[in-house]
Amino acid sequence: MEDYKFLFKVVLVGNAGVGKTCLVRRFTQGLFPPGQGATIGVDFMIKTVEIENEKVKLQIWDTAGQERFRSITHSYYRSAHALILVYDISCQPTFDCLPDWLKEIEEYASSKVLRVLVGNKIDRDDREIPTHVGEDFAQRHNMYYLETSAKESDNVENLFVKIATELMEQAKSKELPRYDEINSQNINRRTTSIDVTCCGN
């Protein structure tokens, strides 16, 4: 068994081109990928962060924003612990779509999921959505709000660390099932565990 105490699934959603992949790359690899194309289906990354001396493993699912991948991406909502809904502060239409995204989240995600609204690309000087508008929207829909720049590495680490911290606190207060318990769950003194890493690697 790997050395971590908590495992959380984090899923990024939002319109195509708002910078989901860039945010994930910035966080997991510390770089701003030049000219990578639109995501096909879903991308998967793992990063372990340390919070209050505890190792927290984040399973990050970076979904494609394009419409034709929706039936793939919807399947990831249900088991997500946190959903990051991203829009581009310099592109009004990506903000206008937020209600549609919320509808999808309502339909497919768990009601307990941690929801975070992120306005990305704050390095750009052609901002179309003022900070307070994003904040208001988030507040009205009971979401956390953060503004980031994947390009300038602004607030990106903070975004994921905040999520990890919040989820860990929730898990500690038992609102969430803890994954390490589930992975080797002790049901009536019999151990049921699923070992998926039995082949390959």
Binding site: V42, F44, I46, Q59, S79, Q185, T192, I194, V196
Partner: peptide
């Protein structure tokens, strides 16, 4: 790793 990530979802069914 994608596959393994999704298969780990089955353990919550077990739970």
């Amino acid at each position: 790793s994608k596959l393994e990530g999704c298969l780990s979802g089955l353990s919550s069914v077990c739970a």
